[in-house]
Nucleic acid binder design. Structure first.
Lengths: 350, 350
DNA sequence: CTGAAAGCGCTTACAG
DNA sequence: CTGAAAGCGCTTACAG
């Protein structure tokens, strides 16, 4: 089947190619009867514009590159879903590449992405150097999510990890906990460092001495949470609450506690960070700090679209929010004096 | 910065555009010194081929469309990761569109996808009619994952849902369970129907009468699992095992049991289907039927690539595998006579 | 192995 | 509002 082109349509409609083109692009007004004739001809012939030719001629590819770490990660997946949503109806499509948390893989993913004709680029976290991103930002609209870039502050969508983490710690401290173990994220990761600092500051503000024995580092994935708990116990660490730098590690930690026959929250309180959608369905449902992940994806897409439209917009600020579920409870000593936690359903998710 | 083109490179290297083009496409041999001159010029000028122009001239877009339901779903996300992996290094990129389990949205997602110049199409499940897919398959290489298409059997990657489900039920029956409740997937979904049939057949083979009171339908998402358990209890249903048509609903069901203070597996055994990566980290780790989700994604990509390369290959068969973790146990009556379940770590995931 | 030339299917000043 | 024409940057028979 020979592909039918604009020329075929124009011919059938008795107009010039230019006019037919205008009907589809909508850039210039076309007399009503000609417009109708073109539409009719296109319909009859089953014409579909060739996006590639259009791109070459117009200089726009209608493709937005998205550099992520793992499309199937519950965290990044949510952001991607938001991006998809934000791009919907715009005519732009997203095209992904994943670095899988490895510096080299990320570099090659980015390289592969830039080998395509992109109209914009969204970068989700990762380790690509600031300078590289600055260079790219000079070439095309760029938005970074979940990371900062020197000199591109207005193009970065971030949350306040320090504050969020501080508030998690505060929640535990206010419940009476003083011996709080912490499973940190990888020190190479900016967010992880900020969260650790938030935790530390809260301890300091409550005049609680930090105990190095209660600190373990993980890699943000489930297995490392499990191993971290094992590490704590094998050190003989004693604690009444366990704070974890992200939900995925908190899941692993939860399993570690289960393995030891430790009840949550009766014996130990557990708190995560991110509020992944599964966190409303763990047993018990996880208390955690909610990141507006999906919303940030949407905002990133909108920011790119705006920049593409020539009216760059400063993305809104994103706030984290403590979601108190059932994995945290007052310390033993105080429990009797406080009402039992409300066994509510994970309502906000249903 | 003016974009530098092949012509610039050719000029700088003192060769024709054709020759320069050949250096990059590698379609024809080029004399060594000219080859070197071109490479050097390209390097000096920082030349990057324009993929769009290349596409228009060659007639290939290097884009594979992927019609999915939700990029952030733990199930589809795994398949997508596989596709990404399978495409890596091929020069082809995947471009996604999601139907979100809604018939109309899926149709519009597909329409949007086909509005682009695609070299191939991968369809993950969904409700797009067979005829539509057949029509598309006549236009471009097409692979379906997790669904059948009349007349395109060799282009469908599927697992045997009936058998997988049968084996889940068998596992419970062999543990001595006879009163087994079942949370089914949506009846509109082919996989859901097959799984229900597998469950029923197993009951029949074990001469267990089916009790309609023990059957509830969900929608494959977590909240429906929770609600299904509530429905069962509010009916006053009695059962010693709960079989669930997929892991996500099993998570919800797990929470429902927890709400009632029911222990798993001491009071009730729980089994899922899919083996999502989180299922190794639930408490207790979930016994489930493993689908080689990631592997199917890889295979889908390879099949598309093969078709594109002109040597279509019949994709391999995929087998499900029972993963026995800790959410299933013998019925009370028999428990004493059997060894306790081995509290192993979720080893295969670590 | 190489060059001149046509062509991929559209868009967009330009002139009316 | 409309047409003729140039051009987007490459690939690929064709002829040598």
């Amino acid at each position: 089947m020979a592909t039918i082109t604009l020329e075929d349509v124009a011919q059938a409609a008795g107009v010039s190619v230019s006019t037919a083109s205008r009907v589809f692009s909508g850039t210039t007004k076309v007399r009503a009867d000609k417009h109708a004739a073109v539409m009719k001809a296109a319909d009859a012939l089953g014409y579909r514009p060739n996006a590639i030719a259009r791109s070459l001629a117009s200089g726009r590819s209608m493709l937005i590159g998205v550099l992520t770490q793992d499309t199937s990660s519950p965290f990044y997946g949510e952001v991607l879903r938001g991006i998809e949503q934000g791009l919907e109806g715009s005519g732009y499509s997203a095209i992904f590449a994943s670095g899988h948390w490895r510096v080299e893989e990320e570099a090659s993913a980015l390289h592969g992405l830039m080998g395509r004709p992109l109209d914009g680029l969204i970068v989700l976290g990762g380790h690509t150097p600031d300078e590289r991103l600055s260079t790219l930002a000079a070439q095309l609209p760029l938005i970074a999510v979940g990371r900062g870039v020197q000199g591109l502050e207005t193009q970065c969508l971030r949350i306040d990890n320090f504050q969020g983490s501080y508030d998690c710690a505060r929640h535990l401290l206010e419940l009476g906990h003083r011996r709080i173990a912490y499973i940190a994220g990888p020190a190479s990761h900016r967010d992880a460092r900020d969260r650790l600092e938030g935790f530390r500051r809260a301890l300091a503000d409550w005049k609680v001495d930090e105990d190095p024995n209660l600190l373990v580092e993980g890699d943000f994935l489930e297995p490392s949470g499990l191993m971290a708990v094992e590490a704590l116990f094998s050190r003989g660490a004693l604690f009444s609450a366990l704070m974890v730098a992200n939900d995925q590690m908190a899941y692993g930690a939860r399993l570690g506690l289960y393995r030891r026959g430790i009840r949550v929250p009766e014996d130990i309180s557990l708190i995560g960070f991110d509020d992944l959608s599964s966190s409303a369905f763990t047993t018990p449902p996880l208390t955690t700090m909610r990141q507006p992940t999906y919303e940030m994806g949407v905002a990133a897409a909108e920011a790119i679209l705006a920049a593409l439209g020539g009216t760059p917009l400063t993305p809104p600020e994103f706030r984290v929010q403590l979601i108190v579920r059932e994995s945290t409870a007052p310390t033993h000593r105080d429990r009797q004096r406080l009402p039992p936690p409300d066994p509510q359903y994970p309502g906000e998710r249903l």
